[in-house]
Design a protein around this nucleic acid. Structure first.
Lengths: 182, 182
DNA sequence: GTCTATAACGAGATAGAC
DNA sequence: GTCTATCTCGTTATAGAC
């Protein structure tokens, strides 16, 4: 599928021919659905962001603590890493200078959404008394998201998801923890 | 220059033609110096890693504290970000599945070198009593390096190096700080 | 070492039949 | 919607003159 190829090889690393082989249809048929590669890239980003948005909403509704929210957030990333992919937006962010502007905008919008959600999670942690870090929740959210993207990037280049696990555990522990045992 | 193009657009985002235009020579002449793109990519990685190695050695020799080591390490990354580039290895890490194996190896070797150096810096911080984090220095080094790579990636997609500055300041503060004022 | 010229291939994209 | 056929362009790479 196109999404998988984009997350594995990047926007400049896959072609209409690659997708058509996997799907068993011709390039011309693909162009019927997505006239240009820009349109294809936009559709990919749109769907990816929408599914991620839904997943985050589900977590926010059902999680019983800020810690659980963040741990399940990390698991979303881990799930794509273990199958050899990167976050689609992390991948596109690396290639951003070569992307059509319409796709660049969507990359930033995805990051914005993630930062907002994490910011809410950390604010909840503060309310619960489990936030370990004194700082502004929004600023912490940026650091956290960037650190996760980087941890994925490096871990995948080694083919070792465990590297991501170690990093993400430490990272979560830095931000949130059990309430003080008083 | 080829290095700049690779750090800005990625391995799959530049061509012999791009470089030849910038250098004012023909593609054929470029092929005389670098017969294949794989050879060109390897040469790029080799030089980048060697210059980084020298820069790190200089810092380790002249820095007067672990905090200064790490701050100057962060400045190395910042310097490439402010001119719109990524760390060459961060970029290549995103494209790693599309790279010739000989280049993949060098990407990992670069990360290994960075982790080792940071690990030494944190060990020094522990010796000085400025290490804030209880953990294994090597594990902290991985988290730190990955977080910096990710912070660059995200900051550049916004065209805002200040994002990187905010993240890196927080990150450094998490790991190292002034000695307790006792 | 650098050039012109060209090969060989894959990319994104279109026309038009079915 | 999917196909065959084709186009145009950019890519890596080579041959051979200067």
């Amino acid at each position: 599928m196109a999404e998988s190829l984009a997350q594995t090889r990047g926007y400049n690393g896959f072609s209409y021919a690659d997708i058509s082989h996997v799907l068993g249809i011709t390039k011309a048929s693909l162009h019927y659905h997505f006239p240009t590669k820009e349109a294809l890239g936009q559709a990919l980003m749109e769907r990816y962001a929408e599914e991620f948005r839904l997943a985050l909403a589900r977590i926010a509704e059902t999680a019983s603590s800020a810690l659980e929210m963040v741990e399940r957030y990390v698991a979303l990333y881990r799930d794509v890493l273990v199958v050899g992919r990167l976050c689609l937006c992390g991948m596109f962010a690396a290639e951003v200078t070569t992307l059509p502007p319409g796709i660049q905008d969507r990359v930033r919008a995805f990051f914005d959404m993630n930062e907002q959600w994490l910011s809410d999670a950390f604010a909840r942690g503060r309310h619960e008394g489990t936030l370990r870090i004194e700082q502004d929740a929004a600023e912490g959210a940026r650091l956290f998201m960037g650190a996760l993207e980087g941890a994925m990037l490096v871990a995948r280049s080694y083919g070792q998801p465990q590297r991501f696990d170690a990093d993400s555990r430490r990272l979560v522990a830095l931000f949130l923890g059990a309430a003080s045992r008083s």
